[in-house]
Design a protein around this nucleic acid. Structure first.
Lengths: 105, 105
DNA sequence: TTGACATGCAACCAAATGGTTGCATATTAA
DNA sequence: TTAATATGCAACCATTTGGTTGCATGTCAA
């Protein structure tokens, strides 16, 4: 669950597409995911392995099929712990919201 | 300014370290940045070129020196347009804030 | 039971990546 | 002017990456 693994996993467009696909329909089997990708099943398998390594995807074996589930936690962690540092407008806007709430309370 | 270039630029720990360094002290020269990195100047130059390509770093030539400035905009765009899709708790919390504000107004 | 189907494993390959060294160019300062 | 300093360019190299093909294994259904 190293942050580096997450960044490297997200670097490839095919893997981001796989995450998108799981975001739309969670729990897809390997075959279902392959149907959308323009490459061999083995290539997709490798990409999914990298996503699993980064803990972005979890799998459950159901009989002869393997279901894939999206885990958004590492993405959230990156957003909070790393990207947050570089944000300006967005964080300021949230800070303004909080200040207004504090006055409200 | 393609999103893919930004993701690939962020995939390398050395490049994230360079962004960190510029976040701490903006406008550093190439030599200053190299001093912190455990590799040759030419290697750092290549990393900075990739960051420039992704529009994460902007440079200004000052005489024989080259100053490097962090541009957080692409990181914000990734946070807004891509990571936001996968966020759960964080976005919900922000949504709650907004709803409370709407009641307030 | 046997054939079809879903997945796993491994070898192989081309291209990209991250680094090096060597030398060239441009600017500042003595 | 000349020497030191800051950066640029290019060739080269090892390793990683993203993909392939071929075959093996496991499970469901007829």
């Amino acid at each position: 669950m190293s942050m580096d693994a997450v960044f490297r996993a997200l670097a490839d467009p095919t893997r981001r597409q796989l995450l998108d696909s799981l975001h739309i329909r969670n729990g897809q089997t390997l075959n279902a995911l392959c149907a959308e990708m323009d490459m061999t099943r083995q290539a997709v398998t490798k990409h999914l392995a990298i996503l699993e390594e980064a803990n972005l995807v979890t799998t459950i074996r159901k009989g002869r099929e393997k279901e894939h589930y999206l885990n958004p936690v590492p993405i959230n962690e990156i957003a909070d712990r790393w990207i947050g540092k570089f944000e300006r407008g967005r964080l300021n806007a949230l800070g303004d919201l909080k200040k207004r709430l504090e006055r409200e309370d």
